[in-house]
């Protein structure tokens, strides 16, 4: 069936979505699960940190503006974690679109940066690329 096909395509890469909006998490999760990725979620940087220390991920999709621990603080904490956690790639998706915001994300250790809104096709494409599962 198509689901099994796409699962194989994505190689069941594990993606952690970090966003404080439940609707946004649902939208990204539906988009990625529909493409065969395995998805976990966190509502802020602190919860995300607990998850990445407990289980392996191939990619972290992270928002910037979140309560308690924002996305860039999370990426900095991630990068200073012990290996192999420190090396997990991150895709920042945010409404902040200025070149300074991009530079800040890069300096924090983000691998890639997208500005919201992100279409489902774009999200799938970038996640596939960053997890090495694109054909």
């Amino acid at each position: 069936m198509t689901t099994v096909e796409s699962n194989r395509d994505a190689g069941r890469a594990r993606v952690l979505i970090v966003d404080d909006s439940s609707l946004v998490r649902l939208y990204y999760r539906e988009t990625l699960e529909g493409a065969g990725f395995e998805v976990e979620q966190a509502i802020n940087g602190i919860e995300a940190m607990e998850k990445v220390l407990a289980e392996p991920f191939d990619l972290i999709v992270v928002d910037v503006n979140m309560p308690r621990m924002d996305g860039l603080s999370f990426i900095r904490a991630l990068r200073s974690s012990p290996s192999p956690v420190a090396a997990v790639p991150t895709l920042v998706i945010t409404t902040e679109a200025s070149s300074q915001d991009r530079e800040d994300a890069r300096a924090a250790g983000a691998n890639f940066y997208l500005v919201k809104p992100v279409s489902d096709a774009d999200l799938r494409r970038h996640v596939a690329c960053l997890t090495g599962t694109s054909r």
Binding site: D20, S21, L23, V24, Y27, K116
Partner: peptide, 14 residues
């Protein structure tokens, strides 16, 4: 409906 039909759904906290 928002998720299926609004292209800016991820841009705002709804």
């Amino acid at each position: 409906w928002l998720m299926e039909n609004w292209s800016e759904v991820d841009k705002y906290n709804i």
